[in-house]
Amino acid sequence: MTGSIAPRTEIRLAGEGGQGMILAGIILAEAAAIYDGKMAVQTQSYGPEARGGASKSEVVISAGEIDHPEVLSADVVVTLSQEAFDKYASTVKPGGLLIVDDDNVRSIDVPEAVKIPIGRLALHTTGKSITANTVALGVLVGLTGVVSREAIEKAVTARAPRGTEEMNRQALQAGFTAAEQVREGGSK
């Protein structure tokens, strides 16, 4: 006979196709499953085209077995585009964490949203806006601790194309730092 449901943390990462949110989900799941020894399931959905449209990656992390693989009630939602925000911001559960890239999302009608200019941070830190997904992972882990910093750093480094490891580490660190500032500012 199987026991009860192990507590699960449900994370939804959304952005435009091409922003690397599916990869961010994979990295987060790898951090949990390979480096932190937890269970993780990553699922995804894209628009009909391979590029453009809203793209969504979901990660469920638990210390125990994960049955239903998709997010049921998101503990954390991260949105990097207006379309993603409009579509998924409302799916965060009451009391959950909504992280918004206010560099890319102009119209934010949710007062509790944690606004961080993720796109600009990426550009300032690495010179490449494509590292925004890594910055977002830094923010997410810095604010939630859903996986350890060591695990996410290893996972990011392992997935980074050769020669971009240091750049991605810096992007991740920028995310950590931004998260710390939010915590210190007390502005959840």
Binding site: A40, Q42, P69
Partner: peptide, 9 residues
């Protein structure tokens, strides 16, 4: 599609 595309350890 779920089993085909989902990632698990």
């Amino acid at each position: 599609e779920i089993i085909g595309h989902m990632r698990e350890p």
